[in-house]
Design a binder for these strands. Structure first.
Lengths: 177, 177
DNA sequence: TATTGTTATACTCTATAACTATA
DNA sequence: TATAGTTATAGAGTATAACAATA
């Protein structure tokens, strides 16, 4: 991402396509008339939850990746390990459905976690089509560390949007988890 | 995405009927022990804003794409057309920075919008390296329709999370837009 | 027949690097 | 030297389809 995700001062949304302050910019004028990003209005975009959510999600994932860069764990890998850790024995289908991940994609995610000796696939005795997923001993130790770093990331979020706002957000979006 | 982002209502029927409240599960049990998604705990994930935000963003983008499918416009295309419409003459760099899009990616986005005669690139007279971006006449008419459909999508969001919650969300995340 | 895990393909998006034409 | 637009590549992530083993 090139853009700055920080506070750009909510420029007023204009319904028509006119420059903010009578500063004239002819229709065919050259590009680059805006010295500051703040001058560029978002228009209807400012009222769309999806736009704000997308920008926020990019920021939050980047902070997560940065905060856990020393252990090389990305958000999806963390989510997979966390549900397996909390629900040992789950099948790949169950994990995929619970987290909204394509089962085809989970195959590759698990391949990489298994190669790092964090997760193991155990052939199910009752249904030989499926695998029971477990953390390895190493995986359990590692996950504990990942959780500490993830909690640190979560503190960054609270600093960024405010403690109360973070809790309100979790409450509003609880139905989607 | 296969997963339903709504409150999963556990449609899955399974031969192996387990008591809903029984929770003892041995560490080496086979896969597929969970009859209902609701039984699969998220553990630490439940406290992570990023997880909820990601699930919500997937839902909201899918609703946007579905609601605007008749006009074949995706969220990023809509955002690009909206800022160009509100700020005619902007350079590609300015649009890219404002929306947090890689300038390399904006090239392809604009190629496709230009091929559909919605946007035009005009050589800047003052800086011949850059292009001044404008909506075409057709683009302006089309954008008005896109905005009506986007407003319909926004009503879906309000229905889903509640009117007040949607406004609270916009307020909390305003700093990221 | 249906499901689980797997492989494969295609398209979107993100992140870089390098090239060109200008400045 | 630096910047705007472009081209190219690589890696995630999403969306499908199809296949083998098993139910």
């Amino acid at each position: 991402m090139t853009g700055n995700a920080q506070l750009s001062k909510a420029t007023k949304s204009r319904t028509d396509a006119r420059p903010p302050r009578g500063r004239k910019r002819s229709a065919n004028s050259g590009a680059g008339q805006h010295a500051l990003d703040d001058e560029i209005g978002l228009d209807a975009l400012a009222g769309h939850a999806g736009y704000a959510v997308r920008r926020f999600q990019i920021w939050i994932f980047q902070d997560f990746i940065r905060t856990l860069s020393a252990v090389d764990i990305r958000p999806t890998q963390y989510s997979v390990m966390t549900v397996i850790g909390a629900n040992p024995g789950l099948s790949q289908m169950a994990v995929a459905k619970r987290l909204g991940i394509e089962r085809a994609r989970l195959v590759h995610l698990l391949d990489s976690l298994e190669q790092r000796d964090l997760v193991s696939r155990i052939k199910s005795a009752t249904d030989r089509r499926s695998h029971a997923l477990h953390l390895t001993a190493r995986g359990r130790t590692a996950l504990a560390q990942f959780k500490r770093l993830a909690a640190e990331h979560e503190r960054h979020v609270a600093e960024k949007i405010g403690k109360g706002n973070r809790e309100k957000l979790l409450q509003i979006l609880a139905a989607f988890t």
